[in-house]
Design a protein around this nucleic acid. Sequence first.
DNA 1: ATCGCGTGAGCGAAATGCGCAGAATCCCCT
DNA 2: AGGGGATTCTGCGCATTTCGCTCACGCGAT
Lengths: 231, 231
Amino acid sequence: MSDSALTTLVVDDDFRVASVHEGFVEKVPGFLVVGKAHTAADAIEMAQRLQPDLILLDIHLPDGDGLEVARILLDNPRPPMVLIISAAADIAAVRTAVQLGVVHYLVKPFGFAALAERLSAVRAAHAKLTDWPADAGQEEIDGFFELLRPMPSDPDMPDIEHLAPTLQLVYKTIGSGSAGLSASDIAAQVGISRATAQRYLTQLEHIGAVKLQLRYGQTGRPEHRYSIRRN
Amino acid sequence: MSDSALTTLVVDDDFRVASVHEGFVEKVPGFLVVGKAHTAADAIEMAQRLQPDLILLDIHLPDGDGLEVARILLDNPRPPMVLIISAAADIAAVRTAVQLGVVHYLVKPFGFAALAERLSAVRAAHAKLTDWPADAGQEEIDGFFELLRPMPSDPDMPDIEHLAPTLQLVYKTIGSGSAGLSASDIAAQVGISRATAQRYLTQLEHIGAVKLQLRYGQTGRPEHRYSIRRN
DNA sequence: ATCGCGTGAGCGAAATGCGCAGAATCCCCT
DNA sequence: AGGGGATTCTGCGCATTTCGCTCACGCGAT
């Protein structure tokens, strides 16, 4: 296994975040940060000049899409390894990232431990490639593949895809509103009766998908306000 | 490269969807459907008994999670290849699927062409493993990796040419109407019973060809309205 | 003759809205 | 401090409408 550290370029539009990530990477044995970029243009220029082994690449850059930067950098005879960092955990970005051949995909927020784990896996994968045996077989393939697979995250939201259509609709309507919504609010937006909305809101609250808050301060029974439960 | 067909097990909770997928697979050269399962328990039992090369596996099964089935089946000295079929394109499921080592991940709706493309890639990957060169290098790795990374499905209208005649007729009738149509509407226009129309509409909705909206505002069970799904 | 498949009829269940009783709060008066 | 009235909202029973499923039938293939 190579003794030299893996040179790393950190790319993030936010200076502070880039510094935090630099600090993280520096703490992992076997890695050396050789530069930081804050725009797509700088990222491409510095990657070509510094030829780092690994690039931590934020998707959202002020002058372009991080995935487009990845595409450009990975279209190369000897491309760097790219580890995507993103707040936007949408399927399209993940698909594109995987299709592009990124080694890992980290969704914010993450801590030092999460990054360290993946950097270790990246280092192991890099080492495996460097010392590939001549009689490689299925085990080597599997071992390599395993190192590069993204890690599963905790399922935040309940899986409501296969629940009743009206329940899905009510849930999505709550999600589209920032403030807590009442049964009457939901009913008006969805186009169903207040009683039906109430029925489903109670159900969602019982399964823990939404949280309930009461509106006090007026005469009459307090209004139930519902909002998406975020963990 | 082996001349024998890749034996395939189709797993889907919906009998009709399973039949549709069986029809698709049978039309791709080099594949042979050896069984269909509709529950997690059946899938595991049939996979162990039939030892198929490939399993088309729906995530949502009545008695368990398809990904858990994949986990069980892939934890095996000589596992089958697993191709996930899912309506729930959430990142957690994708991550888990990739981590488990599935060969492809198809998100509904997809048509025959999309499945055929991936089955061809699966066959190519299988062939590449069978004839792995002794002096394999980065190119071989990349080539293999590319074949097995989940690809985004084409957002095309599902290919219904290979479906049952009445199903095609129902689908085309929906397409000819701009507004959502109910089962009764479809039945009247096609000249079939409401129950039959309902049967095929449910099937089309399950395979992702049409989308369902409910008509609210009146007492009684809301009317299901179907329209062509356009992306 | 038998079997399998597609279809229609009919029935029980699901899902909605209506309307009302009662719950829950606030405020005022004693 | 406590009771009662007013107000507002929730929860639920019931009627209505539609869906989903089972069973029977017809037809074509064997």
